[in-house]
Amino acid sequence: MDIIAIQNAFAAALVDPGQPAPAGITTARGKPDEKRFAVYRNNVAVGLTRALESRFPVTRQLVGADFFAGMARAFIAGHKPASPLIFAYGGDFPDFVAGFAPAAGLPYLADVARLEAAWTHAYHAADAVPLAIATLAGLDGERLAVARLTVHPAAALLRSCFPTGSIWQAHQGDIAGSASFSGGECVLVTRPEFDVRVHVLPPRDAPFAEALFGGLTLGEAAERTAAEPEFDFGAALVGLIGLGAFAGVRMEGG
């Protein structure tokens, strides 16, 4: 058998526990041994499960270690990493969680996983100096209205129908909080320097933040939020910039 055929057969048996060890695999006794081949299967499964456990620790706490292991196994069966960069593995795990029927009783679970995926993305994102409010101070009202803000490479905004940010915060540290939450939240993940931060935005600022993350101009974003009675354009803008949501300002283009 040539090497392409050997590796095709090896890989096919590796990813399908229902298959026997491939032909041509043997032992010093001269006889194949399923338990030995299973070591490779187990290494792949355990390695990828560990990667998901380390990227989604709160998701795991919410469902328990055994449930998480089962959910991870189901995900891994259909999703092998696209590259050797294992820290990036599981970007599509939250979508899988959303459709994972046994977890349907925890409708917020997928959003917590999305927040955790955004956290790792922020941790490894490119370094960039956050936009300083002073950069905008030189712009007059007319130019400010047509300015668009460039989202910081580490920043992500998650709009959830559930109190996702509060649930996540309650599971930081050794002892899980027991506070009860309700209502949706808009969560901003940033990494102004090297520490990843998670912020729950005031509800009145959420549409404005979404508009800016969507690439609208400051003027368009302000118009969109005009109906919010409590909304304060200056406070919202200074707040988002101060949290490190943006890396720059540009005057044209979408």
Binding site: D2, I3, I6, Q7, N8, F10, A11, A12, L14, V15, G24, Y40, N43, V44, G47, L48, A51, H79, K80, P81, A82, S83, P84, I86
Partner: peptide, 25 residues
């Protein structure tokens, strides 16, 4: 060892046979 395949990155250091062909490769 090898770890990449059409099936994806297989996340282990997998063995290969030692032959003239693999030596070349």
């Amino acid at each position: 060892a090898w770890s990449t395949h059409d099936a994806g990155f297989l996340n282990d250091v997998l063995p290969l046979p030692y032959t003239a062909e693999t030596l070349e490769r």
